[in-house]
């Protein structure tokens, strides 16, 4: 009975760790998962494994993850397409992933050891611009890709400069926007 409850609780914490948007919380869920695993080993009469799992799984590995998180932050890019947003297809996703603009952005963040995470947004452009979950909004229209920037973000200015240095062959346009709307 206790075993079944522990296994179910482990499943719950594993799902929480996968589905939580905050990486710091996911690490804590993983630590709790390891602690439950240690308890399960204890119930199955393997105390040696329980000691090792409790110390390594929820002690050392949690610290390693936290240290890694401190160094390597995740940058979320939202991709908006006003026409395609109701029927998102595989071919459209691969078209965006392989486009020159996204490759340039990826290259920029790769140089700075940032992890880039691309999210396809199903809401309208105005809502996406005001959503704090996305660090950068890229919209596709007839002319190509446009990145929406505001002047407060130092990173965006640097990205803009890098793209300009690449010459006129760049695939990204930059659109400035503020709280009131697109300028």
């Amino acid at each position: 009975m206790v075993e079944v409850a522990t296994i179910l609780l482990m499943g719950v914490f594993a799902a929480l760790a996968i589905h939580s948007n905050v990486l710091r919380l996911a690490i804590i869920y993983l630590a709790v998962f390891s602690l439950l695993a240690a308890f399960l080993y204890l119930l199955y009469a393997a105390p040696e494994l329980a000691i090792a799992e409790a110390v390594i799984g929820s002690g050392l590995v949690t610290l390693l993850y936290l240290a890694a998180l401190k160094r390597n932050r995740v940058y979320t890019i939202g991709v908006v397409n006003e026409q395609q947003r109701d029927h998102l297809s595989d071919s459209y996703i691969s078209h965006v992933e392989r486009s020159k603009a996204l490759r340039e952005i990826r290259q920029f963040f790769l140089l700075r050891e940032f992890e880039v995470q691309i999210v396809f947004v199903s809401s309208a452009l105005d809502e996406a611009l005001n959503d704090p979950a996305y660090d950068l909004i890229v919209a596709e229209d007839g002319e190509g890709f446009a990145a929406f920037t505001d002047d407060e973000s130092y990173a965006m200015l640097e990205l803009e400069m890098m793209v300009q240095m690449h010459g006129s062959g760049s695939a990204i346009r930059f659109v400035r926007h503020s709280e009131e709307g697109v300028v």
Partner: peptide
């Protein structure tokens, strides 16, 4: 129950606590 590996990882957690 225990042994070299388990006790050693408990000792390693001392470094973690200090950090």
């Amino acid at each position: 129950p225990g042994g070299g590996f388990q006790g050693g990882s408990v000792l390693a957690s001392l470094f973690v606590a200090r950090y």
